Amino acid sequence: MRVGLYGGSFNPAHAGHRHVGLMALRRLRLDRLWWLVTPGNPLKARGDLASLDTRIGAARALAAHPRIAVTGFEAEIGARFTLETLRYLRARRPGVRFVWIMGADSLASFHRWRGFREIADLVPIAVVDRPGFTLSASSSPAARFLDAHRVDERDAGALADLAPPAWVYLHGPRSTLSSTALRAGGAY
């Protein structure tokens, strides 16, 4: 089983999230995609964070795809960091080939994540390009650290079968939608 893990606040979930999800399912040849709605991002202020139940409900309504599951299980297991979530999943589902999916904006700050090197050693990573982050993500400390393990985009469909560290940068149609901008515009 090949499962993509797409974590985030989803505050609010929007069509750009669905676009990334559908692209990941297709380009990475995934069997399933799990949207992991986080209780809160340790690198972001929580002041304007909608309740977990509200964000999960909105994400489920938006995902609307038989191979996308939306879950808030990180709150249930008490995981605060991606590293904790991945350790938990790898220990309990050793036969599943997980792939972590993030936007280019996340790659730009990935070096600030707790245990980013161990995350890269636990699962292959797919980075989806986002407007305004192409260059900063590609030249970020994490991208430079992982450069020797970058997979050609033409081989993205094999990523789940590769031993980590391995990562791919996916290009294609990009969504300009942003949860931050939607909140600023009063959409949530």
Rank of each mutant, 00 (worst) to 15 (best):
R183A: 01
F98D: 00
T134V: 14
R97C: 03
A184R: 14
S136L: 12
F73D: 10
L170Y: 11
L162W: 08
R130Y: 11
R154H: 11
P94N: 01
A64L: 03
P94R: 04
H171W: 12
A166I: 06
G21F: 06
A156F: 14
F81I: 08
D31P: 02
G78K: 10
A91R: 15
I119T: 03
W113M: 10
P165K: 06
V127R: 07
R80T: 06
A79K: 01
L170R: 09
L182P: 04
L43K: 08
V128W: 09
G185F: 04
W35K: 01
P173I: 14
L135V: 15
R18P: 01
M102T: 01
R174D: 01
F145T: 05
P12W: 07
E84V: 02
A59V: 07
A120E: 06
P131K: 12
T180M: 02
S9Y: 10
A79Y: 00
G47L: 11
G185A: 13
A137D: 08
A148W: 07
W113S: 09
H14M: 06
L107E: 02
G57Q: 07
S9E: 05
L36F: 08
D48T: 14
S106G: 09
T54M: 10
D147F: 13
R144P: 04
G7F: 00
A15P: 01
K44C: 06
F133A: 06
T54V: 13
L5W: 06
H14C: 06
S140C: 13
I56L: 00
A156W: 14
V151F: 11
A187H: 06
A50G: 01
E118Y: 09
I56F: 00
G78M: 08
R80A: 09
L62T: 10
G4W: 07
L28Q: 01
A137C: 11
A13Y: 09
D147Q: 14
F116P: 08
G8P: 06
E84H: 03
G95R: 04
T71E: 15
R87Q: 08
E76D: 13
R2T: 00
G8K: 13
L182Y: 04
E118Q: 15
A13H: 10
